[in-house]
């Protein structure tokens, strides 16, 4: 049976199921209870108690860093950092203490760091520059992390269960926006490194993650009315990246547009574009298009925000540009 639930509800189910399955799993974050409103951690304290749902002091350093220490001695922490913007306070803990720790120490004595860092991303909420960021490329740049970017409640639940079971640090990004979607009653997981074709098409390949999938699907629907057949691919995880599915699509369409809410420079579009050119240069019939934030802080006022962040219109324009080349 399917139900329609939100991403937060889907993540809540994933956490509860994994905490029941494995006593090493616990959640740590700021203000986890009493919780007002719906969140991924709502109500967990009632079932699992205050040791496994740890309401932390207001310190991302303590939240992320304690997760690393606990993971080193056999726990499987889920660190709720709320917004990616806030998690910048804990970059040393995330990038160096979790991402590089195993490698630096040569995997000493079977060292593992099974940690999930939950971070909310995205704009379109008048959050201004420090409550709207989507720094996927920053984390992708550094070695040792895995990166999950679900676009639907279904994937949020299935990927989060996989993330909790992974023996490596996983960055888990969910967008502030996002509609409810169908999620099965029965347990399931979504593996890392398997892209999904959200919409098949023959003319242009669009690669998008998270909320950009929603906007790209709208753009594709609009262009279908004009006779342009767009294929939309959602990688679901950036690390590992299912580049094969993307390349196969580009070989078919000859055109690629990458849509990313983050700043464009050294971004997700640059990386995916480069990988496609390395593997399928001769298949490309037009320059790779990028739709992203034009390297600006996200402004507050809605008209300004709309001028900076990707929109259905800007995605359509980029897709059409690849067809005129």
């Amino acid at each position: 049976m399917m139900r329609s639930i939100t991403t937060a509800q889907a993540m809540n189910e994933a956490l509860a199921e994994e905490m029941r399955r494995d006593p090493a799993v616990y959640v740590v974050g700021l203000g986890l209870y009493p919780s007002a409103g719906e969140s991924a951690t709502s109500g967990l304290v009632d079932e699992f108690g205050e040791l496994r749902v740890r309401s932390a002091p207001m310190s991302e350093t303590a939240i992320a860093g304690s997760a690393v220490g606990a993971a080193l001695v056999g726990m499987r922490p889920v660190a709720e950092l709320h917004l990616a913007d806030f998690a910048f306070n804990a970059l040393d803990e995330i990038l160096s203490k979790s991402g590089k720790w195993r490698y630096t120490h040569g995997g000493n004595d079977g060292m593992k760091l099974p940690i999930v860092f939950l971070e909310g991303i995205g704009g379109y909420v008048a959050g201004a520059s420090e409550h709207s960021q989507s720094p996927l490329a920053l984390y992708w740049h550094f070695p040792g992390l895995k990166i999950a970017v679900p676009a639907t409640p279904y994937d949020a639940k299935g990927l989060l269960k996989t993330a909790v079971r992974d023996d490596n640090p996983v960055m888990f990004f969910t967008h502030k926006l996002g509609a409810p979607g169908p999620v099965p009653d029965d347990e399931y997981v979504v593996p890392f490194g398997e892209a999904v074709v959200r919409r098949p098409g023959a003319d242009v390949t669009v690669v998008a993650t998270s909320y950009m999938v929603v906007l790209s699907m709208e753009a594709a629907a609009n262009l279908a009315d004009q006779g342009v057949d767009v294929e939309v691919i959602d990688p679901r995880t950036l690390e590992p990246l299912d580049i094969e599915t993307i390349v196969a699509s580009v070989v078919k369409t000859g055109r690629l547009v990458v849509v990313d809410e983050d700043t464009e420079r050294c971004g997700v579009g640059a990386e995916i574009g480069a990988q496609v050119m390395e593997r399928a240069f001769t298949a490309l019939r037009a320059p790779v298009g990028r739709v992203a934030n034009p390297n600006l802080p996200v402004p507050y006022s809605p008209p300004l925000e709309q001028a900076v962040l990707p929109s259905i219109t800007s995605i359509e324009t980029a897709i059409l540009a690849t067809l005129t080349n």
């Binding site: 616990y26 740590v28 040791l51 496994r52 740890r54 350093t61 303590a62 992320a64 860093g65 304690s66 997760a67 690393v68 220490g69 606990a70 993971a71 080193l72 001695v73 056999g74 726990m75 922490p77 040393d92 803990e93 160096s96 203490k97 720790w101 630096t104 120490h105 000493n108 004595d109 079977g110 060292m111």
Partner: peptide, 30 residues
């Protein structure tokens, strides 16, 4: 790192160990 003897590794930043220590304390308590 010498996990066999309970030494969890060495941070390249001074002060990098303190948050790890509270994580180990968390595990012990849990």
């Amino acid at each position: 790192a010498d996990l066999e003897h309970g030494i969890l590794g060495k941070s390249g930043t001074v002060g990098g160990h303190a948050p790890l220590a509270i994580g180990v304390g968390t595990a012990i308590q849990n």
